[in-house]
């Protein structure tokens, strides 16, 4: 069986971009919430847009904005961002049948705009036999441009409403994570890690008030216990 070579064409980029358009509406609330939150913690609109452009990581930005101080705790926000985005380190390798065939900016630029949704779309395109790797960049650019635009709109909305601290509008950021948890639930295997994460993070938050180690401590303890459990089960001779 001969496999068609991987290409990277403007046509592929365009097709990826267009395939995303119906999904952009579903993503709009996240950018809006991020913009409202940025305004709420006292960032300027220029800073809000810059952050959206260079970080382009919704969950990490929402968590960091929730722990934002003046000046920001550089170690805490960097570490939180790193841990939250660690999942992406395993996403790139899945696309290696495409990426391994590309050089230079086509690889590293495509990876810059790789987010959860467009990664999933690209994996399914690849598995359907798609050989035009420009698809990843096209889908990524669609989400990136929407992310930057909705962040700016959210900032303007926040400036118009001027919600005070404790305003229910800020609950939207937390609601995003509740929704994502509901989507991530995979069944009984998640009970143990999630309970451990809940207990450890709550205990650390109580022991070290005003710091943000609780997020890291909860995530690492829960996933290490569950990972070791799964690993030992798989290793067991049957």
């Amino acid at each position: 069986m001969t496999v068609e070579p991987v290409t990277f064409t403007a046509k592929g980029v365009r097709r990826g971009y267009i395939d995303c358009l119906p999904l952009l509406l579903a993503m709009a609330p996240f950018g809006l919430i991020c913009g409202v939150l940025s305004q709420g913690v006292g960032l300027s609109i220029g800073e809000t847009v810059l952050m959206a452009m260079i970080v382009f990581a919704g969950s990490a930005q929402l968590v960091c904005l929730n722990i934002w101080t003046h000046p920001p705790d550089l170690l805490a926000v960097t570490l939180a961002t790193f841990v939250i985005n660690l999942r992406m380190a395993l996403m790139g390798p899945v696309l290696s049948p495409w990426l391994d065939q590309l050089r230079g900016w086509r690889v590293w630029g495509s990876l810059f705009v790789m987010a959860d949704q467009n990664w999933a779309m690209s994996v399914s395109e690849m598995n359907k036999g798609g050989r035009d790797a420009g698809y990843l960049l096209g889908t990524g650019l669609a989400f990136w441009s929407m992310w930057v635009a909705t962040s700016a709109v959210g900032f303007v909305l926040g400036a118009a409403v001027k919600p005070t601290p404790g305003h229910p509008l800020f609950f939207a950021a937390l609601a995003v994570f509740v929704v994502m948890l509901a989507q991530m639930w995979r069944g009984r295997a998640d009970i143990l890690p999630w309970v451990i994460a809940a207990l450890v993070s709550s205990a650390v938050a109580w022991l070290l008030p005003g710091t943000f180690w609780f997020i890291v401590a909860g995530a690492i303890s829960g996933s290490v216990v569950a990972g070791v459990r799964d690993h030992m089960r798989d290793e067991k001779p049957t």
Partner: peptide
Amino acid sequence: PLIRAIMKYIPGTLFVSFVVPSLIQGGLQP
């Protein structure tokens, strides 16, 4: 395989670790 198994659980436990303490601290409204 161990690293893979651990990383598979990071997104979920991370969001739990963010949400649960925030709910405890925030009280009734959240």
